[in-house]
């Protein structure tokens, strides 16, 4: 609570640049997949309350920057509640997560989890890689092995 208030004060004072957060629904996720066809899409599900998610994010952001020009698109989807949007926005800005950065607005978490991958139980972090045709080709449950992810991307690009 104190943390959120502090962030709001900093945001109001312009000391922290809030990132734009785009709410994403089940339909929005399908639109994201459709719009990314022709690129290699890496989707990372994370949350501000998830320590390993926060830990791995800078490496994912660096990887996204390294391969963006070669056709990789990175989408980070925060699984935080709407009430934590300020904390999410602060982390997005601080970590320089590429825009648009998303925050969940799913109608049904269970259905969404199953839609992304039927074998996923909902543990975070969770990273999915889609090839240029939009086919899901790799998933990384838990913390991603960044070297393995980079090899996957290199093969797909």
């Amino acid at each position: 609570m104190k943390h959120s208030i502090a962030i709001l004060i900093l945001l109001a004072a312009g000391l922290v640049h809030a990132a734009d957060l785009q709410p994403i629904s089940e339909a929005g996720y399908q639109r994201l997949l459709a719009s990314a066809k022709g690129k290699v899409l890496v989707v990372n599900f994370w949350a501000t309350w998830c320590a390993p998610c926060r830990k791995e994010m800078p490496e994912l952001v660096a990887l996204a920057a390294k391969y963006r020009a070669k056709g990789m698109q990175f989408a980070a989807i925060a699984i935080d509640e709407e009430s934590d949007a300020a904390t999410v926005a602060e982390f997005v800005a601080k970590t320089k997560i590429p825009q648009p950065a998303y925050i969940k607005r799913f109608q049904d978490d269970q259905k969404f989890i199953s839609m992304v991958d039927p074998r996923w139980s909902g543990g975070l972090p969770f990273t999915v890689v889609y090839d240029r045709t939009g086919r899901k080709v790799h998933v990384f449950p838990g913390e991603v092995n960044i070297r393995e992810l980079e090899q996957v991307i290199q093969k797909l690009l």
Partner: peptide, 10 residues
């Protein structure tokens, strides 16, 4: 069976 978001077991 149900699903939910949570912290991965370390």
């Amino acid at each position: 069976e149900t699903k939910a978001f949570g912290c991965t077991i370390k």
